[in-house]
Computed example of a mutant assay.
Amino acid sequence: MKEIQLKVTDANKKIHGNTILENVSLTMTSGKIYGLQGSNGSGKTMLMRAMCGLIRLNSGTVEMNGKILGKDMAFLENTGILIESPAFLNGYTGLQNLMYLADIQKRVDRDAVRHTIERVGLDPDDKRKYRKYSLGMKQRLGIAAAIMEQNDILLIDEPFNALDVDGIELVKGILLEEKARGALIVLSCHEKQLLESLSDELYLIQSGKIMDHIVL
């Protein structure tokens, strides 16, 4: 895996006249987990959306190894994303959904997809359609979609939603394995202790601003 530097410089975003992000700057590198801590509406999710190219900034830049988002690339390259509620096809099984996604870039085969489903604690041979999944199963499948291609960057927003204690421990282990693999992970979580236990560095966000940066 190549070394990655992800840099956000003076990011600003307004929506309908409301300031969502204000002069946000941060620099992140491979093999670390960067926690985004803040209350609902603080700007964490919007920052992640801006970082991967799902929204465009009014001003400021997002760069990966010197390549500028929106200029040198339309979306952040080699990035696995779990932002807000995972969206899948209701009439497909979990395996069918992930194979549909895998066929887009053709970077992983069926065996790798099956392994990833097992890794998040689901059964790749489960014949239930996605619409029949519990909230926790849907969350696990969303995590599987984010990690299955072994991307250089992972943007993971509230991965522990709807998970039981065993599920939380499982996902914690996965995130640490991805970090050990060399991935650059940006993680948001409303559970302060959980976020602090996983993060190497922590950015405190309030009203769209970085209020503090803590190296743990």
Rank of each mutant, 00 (worst) to 15 (best):
M1Y: 07
M1K: 11
K2N: 13
K2V: 13
E3Q: 14
Q5R: 13
Q5I: 14
K7M: 06
V8M: 08
T9W: 03
K13P: 14
K13V: 15
K14V: 11
I15T: 11
G17N: 10
G17H: 07
T19A: 13
T19G: 04
E22N: 15
N23V: 04
L26P: 03
L26Y: 01
T29D: 04
T29K: 11
G35L: 14
L36M: 12
L36H: 07
G38L: 05
S39K: 15
G43L: 07
K44W: 03
T45R: 03
T45E: 01
M48L: 15
M48V: 09
M51S: 10
C52A: 02
G53M: 03
L57I: 13
N58A: 09
N58W: 02
S59F: 05
S59H: 10
G60R: 02
E63S: 11
M64F: 04
I68K: 15
G70C: 08
M73D: 00
A74G: 07
A74H: 08
E77R: 14
N78V: 01
G80E: 04
I81N: 06
L82E: 06
Y92K: 14
G94M: 05
G94P: 07
N97F: 09
N97W: 11
M99Y: 07
M99E: 13
Y100L: 14
L101C: 08
A102W: 02
R107S: 09
V113D: 01
H115P: 00
I117A: 12
R119I: 01
G121D: 13
L122Y: 05
P124S: 05
P124A: 07
P124H: 12
P124E: 04
D125F: 12
D125E: 15
D126L: 12
D126F: 11
R128S: 13
L135W: 01
G136V: 05
K138L: 12
R140D: 03
L141G: 13
G142S: 09
I143Q: 11
A144H: 10
E149V: 08
Q150H: 09
N151D: 01
I153T: 10
L155Q: 04
I156Q: 02
D157H: 10
P159G: 05
N161K: 06
N161S: 15
N161V: 03
L163I: 04
D164W: 04
V165H: 14
G167S: 06
E169V: 06
E169F: 12
V171D: 02
V171G: 03
K172F: 04
G173Q: 10
L175D: 01
E177N: 14
K179V: 10
G182Y: 05
G182W: 03
I185S: 00
V186Y: 03
V186W: 02
V186D: 04
C189E: 13
C189W: 00
K192W: 00
K192L: 12
Q193Y: 09
L194I: 03
L195N: 07
S197H: 07
L198H: 04
E201W: 06
L204K: 09
Q206H: 15
S207T: 09
G208W: 01
K209F: 10
K209Q: 15
K209I: 07
D212M: 10
D212A: 15
D212I: 03
V215S: 12
